[in-house]
């Protein structure tokens, strides 16, 4: 058994806070979109969704700052040429190798936490979908103040459409993300890793390895 320290405390705290924010944003967003779903009072949901959006902005800025300053961004998130080559191998493992009991072609190390597909997914969600949903959400948060920008970007319907498309992207991402989190040694292994910070890799000598971030 090998114990690797993958996720430092600030990132683990950020991850779970961010998860709660996104979950609440999705729930309130669904009610705003489909008002037949009657969970909370509508006006309250509008305000709650808006303030959650501001919280997401803060959370995103913290992640960006932390990953940039600690160097985690270039180390773990940037998709390199070798990652593109590894993507089909990783995809094939999830679609076929996993069922045949073949070993995961990627093993997380403190130097490289994410496999090629994870990198692509996290990079897309954090550097494309999140900024898009944040900027469009800020514009929608005060239509009067941001009217000039809204018009310059194609009008309210266009901004609304972008926000909703990004919202659907988040829901789809979240479903896949949660499901993929169950593909560890045990169903809860990866979730436990995100709580403790340590990933346990079976079949090797028992020792502890620490990463910097």
């Amino acid at each position: 058994m090998k114990k690797i320290y993958l996720h430092p405390l600030p990132i683990r705290i950020w991850h779970w806070i961010n998860a709660i924010i996104i979950l609440l944003l999705i729930i309130t967003g669904i009610q705003l979109r489909f008002s037949a779903i009657d969970m909370l009072e509508y006006s309250w949901t509008v305000s709650f969704h808006k303030y959650l959006g501001f919280a997401l902005t803060g959370s995103f800025l913290f992640w960006l700052f932390y990953c940039t300053v600690s160097g985690a961004f270039t180390k773990h998130y940037v998709v390199r040429l070798r990652d593109i080559q590894r993507m089909p191998i990783q995809a094939l493992y999830y679609m076929y190798g996993l069922f045949r009991g073949k070993p995961n072609p990627f093993t997380a190390t403190p130097e490289e936490k994410f496999n090629a597909l994870q990198k692509l997914a996290y990079l897309t969600i954090m550097l494309a979908a999140t900024p898009i949903i944040i900027v469009s959400g800020i514009l929608l948060s005060d239509i009067v103040v941001f009217l000039v920008f809204i018009k310059a970007l194609g009008g309210l319907r266009c901004i609304d459409a972008i926000h909703v498309v990004a919202g659907y992207f988040f829901i789809i991402y979240l479903l896949i993300h949660i499901y993929m989190a169950t593909l560890g040694e045990r169903v809860y292994s990866y979730i436990k890793t995100m709580v403790t910070g340590y990933e346990i890799i079976a079949g090797e000598d028992s020792h502890e390895e620490k990463g910097d971030h």
Binding site: R33, V164, V165, Y168
Partner: peptide, 10 residues
């Protein structure tokens, strides 16, 4: 179509 495609994708 945004909703319809979104729900189909989901």
């Amino acid at each position: 179509w945004i909703d319809l495609i979104g729900i189909i994708a989901l």
